[in-house]
Amino acid sequence: MSAAGARAGGGARRTELVSYAGLRADGRRPHETRSIRTRLGFLRTADGSVLFELGQTRILAAVFGPCESARRSEQQHDRAHLHVDVSMTPFALPERRKHRVGDRRLAEIGLAVRRSLPQAVMSHLYPRSEVRLHLQILTSDGGDLAACVTAATLAVMDAGVAMTDFVVGCTAAVVDGRVLMDPTQAEASAATAVIHLAVLPRSRRVVLCQVASRIAADELRDAVGAASDGAVGVFGVVKAAVHDHAVKRLSKRGLLTA
């Protein structure tokens, strides 16, 4: 805490991210996520799809498969191969820039999804097949990685792929020694450390934890705790969304009697 106090006092003054009343710029309390909206089955021709909104961060995820691998080299004899592709629209960020296919930020998100999703996907049920997952970041306002992980889970579920649990992402930022749950881009860029977490919410098992900067051990513990609480909160919302969507879909097919 003392190190954080010195940082806050030493630097040039900037706009306060947390007011005296304990509220953030968008009116949230420090341990509160942004509002979540999901539209499952957004893309009709994809096997599974979702438009996932976390505040002003919007991710469109589409899943094709499980189907036969297009490439023999990627085929695995005992489980399904998960192919992840992340892209960003030219209007996703406030300032325009050229997005190359090999963008490192996007590659990192792809890698995080590829690492965390197989922890819950029962890929051994689909040997020699392939699940193609496309993530399109429509607009970005912090927490892209976490939102991509959650959106990927929802899309894979919508495609009917068997899973043991949800994989839910949440971000936490340490700003002046305070932990902020689910930071916006402005908060994340002012933070001393940003923690990306992917959690299996029912067991609260952490499947991915990414920190890109130095962080004190007690701050890390607080931040991981906050992010994992956030993930459980997000889980409640998306679980209800999946349930509603499933009920709607089943009753449309006449498979559900009231």
Binding site: A46, S49, V86, R132
Partner: peptide
Amino acid sequence: VSVQVSGTVDAAL
């Protein structure tokens, strides 16, 4: 004006 094709248009299909 610029037009981009998203990855969600699955090339294989």
